[in-house]
Design a binder for these strands. Sequence first.
DNA 1: AATTAGCACTCAACATTCAAGAGTGCTAAC
DNA 2: GTTAGCACTCTTGAATGTTGAGTGCTAATT
Lengths: 350, 350
Amino acid sequence: MMVDNLDKRKKRILQAIIQEHVISAAPIGSRTLSKKYEFEVSPATIRNEMSDLEDMGFLEQPHTSAGRVPSDLGYRFYVDEIIQAPELKFPQMLENIEDNYRDMQSIQDIITGTARMLSKMTRYTALVSEPSIQESKLQKVQVLPVAGKSLLIVMITDTGIVHNKIIKTEQDFTAKKLHYINQFLSDKLENKELAKLDPEYLVTIEEQLLAKIDISKKIFTEIYQEFKGINKPEDLKVYLGGTSYILDQPEFNDIERLKKVLNLLDQEKVLGKLINNNLSGADLEVKIGHENELEDMKNCSLVVATYHISDKAIGKIGVLGPTRMEYHRVISAVDLIADILGSSISKVSR
Amino acid sequence: MMVDNLDKRKKRILQAIIQEHVISAAPIGSRTLSKKYEFEVSPATIRNEMSDLEDMGFLEQPHTSAGRVPSDLGYRFYVDEIIQAPELKFPQMLENIEDNYRDMQSIQDIITGTARMLSKMTRYTALVSEPSIQESKLQKVQVLPVAGKSLLIVMITDTGIVHNKIIKTEQDFTAKKLHYINQFLSDKLENKELAKLDPEYLVTIEEQLLAKIDISKKIFTEIYQEFKGINKPEDLKVYLGGTSYILDQPEFNDIERLKKVLNLLDQEKVLGKLINNNLSGADLEVKIGHENELEDMKNCSLVVATYHISDKAIGKIGVLGPTRMEYHRVISAVDLIADILGSSISKVSR
DNA sequence: AATTAGCACTCAACATTCAAGAGTGCTAAC
DNA sequence: GTTAGCACTCTTGAATGTTGAGTGCTAATT
C-alpha cells in the first residue's frame, strides 16, 4: 500500500514518537523529542521528518499547532516492522504465574484465573474464551438415568472437555434399554469429529435408533440440538478480567467513548464473535483501531492469541486496550499466557 | 433510632423530594417542590419542614445555599414506610419475559439471560448467582471411565444441578470395579444433604471403600475436595448484566467513583460474598448506601432477592444502582424475576 | 400557634477574558 | 541536506464576573 521501507532515521523517529505517546497519551512535538532522545539533528530537521511521516500516513496532527500522534497505520507499521523479538518474557513473573495455575482445579477456575492474571500482567482488559470443541473428537457419550423421567447426557471430547445436558422424556427406561442406547450412541458417535457431525448423518442414525427400539423422537432431537449449537463461535462463553483497567486510560475519560466500549464488553455474543471468529487462523493477531470491524472499537486495539491442546487450536485469549497500547509488552504476555493456558487445561482435563 | 412517625405532610414532602431527586439527580429546593406538587402551603412552610427533616437525618444539604438531597436514612424510611404494595407488576412485559425464558435450554443460558433481562428491565446493573447446592441432596453420583486412566465423577442434586469433575488416577479400572465403586458411592452418598457431608463421615466411608477394594487413596481425596468447596458462598459464580448502565448514572460521571464500583464488579469473589452471604435470610433485602459493608459501595444500593426451587432457597439475584435508585420499580422487578428464575431452572433441570 | 411574604445572603455553574506555553511551517542562511 | 529565527496558531488553565436557585431569618398575617 505504501513505501514500506522508511529510512533508518524515520523509523527511529516513528518509534520514539510511539514510545513517548504510549507514556504520555499526548501529542509529541519535535522539541520534546530532540530533548529526550539523542538524535544528532536539530528539532527543525525532526520537524521535517515528522511532516514527511504525516504525509505517508503514519502520524496525525490533532490540530495545527499541536505535536504529532501516531495513526493506526503508524502503529501497524510499528507492530509489523519495528517490534523485535518478544524479548521480555516476564521471567520474574513466570514462577508466580505457574504457582497460580497449580491451585486451579477446574477448567472454569483456570479460565477465570487466566483472565484475571492476563489483565494484571498487562494492565489492560483481558478476554478468555472457553475452549471450543468444534475441532475435537467425541471421546465418550453416555446417557445416565436421573430421577423422574429425565436423562442426563454426558459428552467428553478427546481434549477432555465435558458437556452435559438434562433432557426430559415421557417414558421410563429399563437398564437394558439404556444400555442399548449407550452402546448405540458410542458406536455411532464416538471418535467422530464434532464439526463433521452433519445434520444428515444425525438424521440417519436417528432413524436407525428409532427403528431398533421404542424411544421417543424428542430425545434425539435434543441431542441433535446440542450438537448443532456447539459450533458457533459467538456462543462460546467469554470471560473478562480487569474491566476496570479501561478507566486508567486517559482516552476513556470521555464518558461517551467509555460507554461504547463497556457496552461491548456487556455483550457476550459480540465478544464471542470478535475473538473466536477465526479459530484456525494465525496464532497471533493484532487488530489496531479501525482495523476492527466494529465502529465502537475504533479507539481500541485487540491482541489475540490462540491456545492449543495437543497442537489442536482450541480457543482464544485476548487483550483489549486503547490503540495507544504497549504492543510489545502485551504481545509477549498474550503469547506466553496462551501457551501456559493450553497446557494447564490439558493437565486438569485428562 | 428515631421518631419513626412523621406527620402526614412531612411524609409527603420526603416522598416528593425523593421522587424528584430520583429523576433529576440534583438537590431539590422548596420552590421547585411547591411548583410541581400541590402542597397547599407556601415554599416558606415547606422550607421549615425540610429543615426539620434535615434535623431528623432524612435529608442532607450539599452546601449552604443548595436544595436538599435524601440521605441514606431518608431512603431507608422511604423503602420501609412509604413504598406501598409492589403495584407495578410489569404486566405488559410479562409475556415477553416468559417468551424469552422459553428459548433457554441450559441453566447457563437461563442465568446469563436472567442477568441480561433484569438489567434491561431496571436499567441498572444486574447480578445473578448460580444456584448453590449446599442445601440440596445428592440425587445421584456416578463415576465414568474416561480414556487414559482418568475418571469422570458426575453428581446430580435433587434440585437438578449437575456437577462434574475429571480426576486422574494411576490405575486401570475394570468394569466390575467401577460398578462396585458406583454402587458403593450411591449407597453412602445419595440422598444426603450436601451441607451435612462432614469431613468425619467422608473419612469413614473412605476407609470403608479402601478396605473393600484396591483403589488409590487419591481418588477419594479429590471427591472430598470437591464436596468441601461446594459450600462457600464466595465461590459461587456470579453473572453480570448491564454493567454499562452504571455509566448512565450521573453520580458516576466522576471517574474515581466509577472505578471503585467497576473494580468491585471485576472481583467475582467479592460479589459472591456480597450477594450470597445470607442464603437462607429474608427473601428480599435492600442495602442502602453505607448499609453495605464495603466502603466502595457507599454510593450504591443493592436490592437482593432469593430464588427457590421447590421452596428451597437456592440462589440470589440482585440489582446494583446508585443510592438514588428507583426502589419501587426495582423491588418489583427483582421480586418478579426471582420467581420466574426459580421455576425456569427447575423446568430445564428435571 | 402556624403560616407566609419579604429580603439579604450564599454558592455553584457558566461564560468571558487573558496570559503562558508548546508547537508548527516557512524562509533564508549555513 | 540542515538549521536558526521568527511569526503565527491553538490549547490550557487561571482569574474574574454574572446569573439564578436556594436558604434562613424576621416580622406581619391568619
